Simulated assay, not measured.
Amino acid sequence: MEDIAKAAAATFAAIGSLYLWRRSRLAFVRAMRDVVTEAQMKPSETSYFDRDSSSEIAKRTISLTSSAIVLSWAVGFPVSLTCSRAARSTGHMTAIIASLWFGPIVESPAGIFNRVKNRLRELWHHPMGAVRELIVAPIAEELIFRHALLTILGRRSPRARICISAILFAAAHIHLITNNAVESCRNDVSHLTHTYGVDSASNILSIDEKRTELSHRAWAAAKRQTGTQVAMVFLYGLLCGWVYEHCCERSVTAAVIGHSLCNFTSVPPFFFLRRNCGGKKSTMSVAHRVVSGVAHLAGVVGAVALASAKAE
């Protein structure tokens, strides 16, 4: 159990480093105490916290990078592979991820094209966000949650250490619940302001019952959103841990590129499982749903086959 305790301590130390910054820490505490008050803060206020601002991204970059360097130094820096082996591992990782996207591409080629186009536009207009999602987070998280944690858990069986590291990787994202709650509440406050005007909205928000209702709604939405995020992160942790251990010769480069690709593409839309899309009833026919479901399954089977073939 000592190795699990060390891995857990390393995980929470890395996440805790994000809250060494005063503004981040105060925003977290304020949201836990009164999410409505936090949501009502204006950007002009000195204590306003915007997780996606350039300054906050820079601070989190410093924290995550420092944690990754310290943990890598503690367990030993990754062994460098030859260029050919690193390229082979990276290509294998890319093929596995591409296989997982076979279903979404078959389901809606135009939708995937628009998704990629919109994602590129979003990252182009928010370069610091692009740096965070495509460079800093993949490098730091792979060094921490794959290299460092799997090294700390090295005495355990491959399956055990992959599962434990995936659980810790998912647990490390639970703190996002406060951000999700604040964003949900801000949307509700914005809707009230747009519907009733600034003065009337302020009067409504001064009523304790209404504030309690908004708070409960925000936390309920945050729990659902965070639960989904944590579940997807756990599944990704299992996938990436397996690929890192068995397919990529413990190549951090391959893991980082795979992580970056996943951050860029985000979670597949799974339209074939939805009854409603964008607030409207889905018009997807039964035949289209069946074909899409089969394509998704084929993509998963292909990814598993690619991983298993290399593992053997």
Rank of each mutant, 00 (worst) to 15 (best):
S190R: 15
K210Q: 11
I207V: 12
L20I: 14
R224G: 03
G278C: 14
G91R: 07
V131L: 08
W219D: 11
S266W: 10
R132T: 08
H125V: 06
H191D: 15
E312H: 07
A303F: 02
A110H: 07
F102E: 04
L71P: 00
A137D: 10
E2C: 00
I164Q: 00
A13C: 08
T46Y: 04
F234S: 00
G103I: 04
P268C: 03
L149D: 03
W242Y: 15
S200W: 13
A148P: 01
L64D: 01
C240F: 11
A10H: 00
R186D: 05
D208V: 12
R85N: 15
A31M: 13
S84T: 10
K280N: 15
S215F: 06
V131G: 01
D34I: 05
S53N: 09
S206F: 11
S266M: 15
S266T: 04
S55Q: 15
R274W: 10
A172V: 03
G237N: 01
G16E: 08
V300N: 02
I144W: 01
A110V: 11
I105F: 13
W101R: 04
L214N: 02
A39Q: 11
R275P: 02
E122S: 08
K310F: 07
V290S: 06
W73F: 07
V75R: 00
G76A: 11
A309W: 14
G16I: 13
S72E: 06
H296R: 01
R211Y: 11
M93N: 00
V131Q: 00
Y236I: 14
L71E: 02
L64Q: 06
R25I: 06
A181Y: 00
G227P: 04
S260M: 13
H125K: 09
H191I: 10
D199T: 11
V136T: 15
L273C: 14
K223Y: 06
A86H: 01
I257L: 14
S80D: 07
R115I: 04
V294T: 11
P269T: 07
C262V: 12
A220Q: 13
R156C: 03
L134A: 04
V304G: 01
R121E: 14
I69T: 12
N276H: 12
A222R: 04
V256R: 03
N187W: 14
T90V: 03
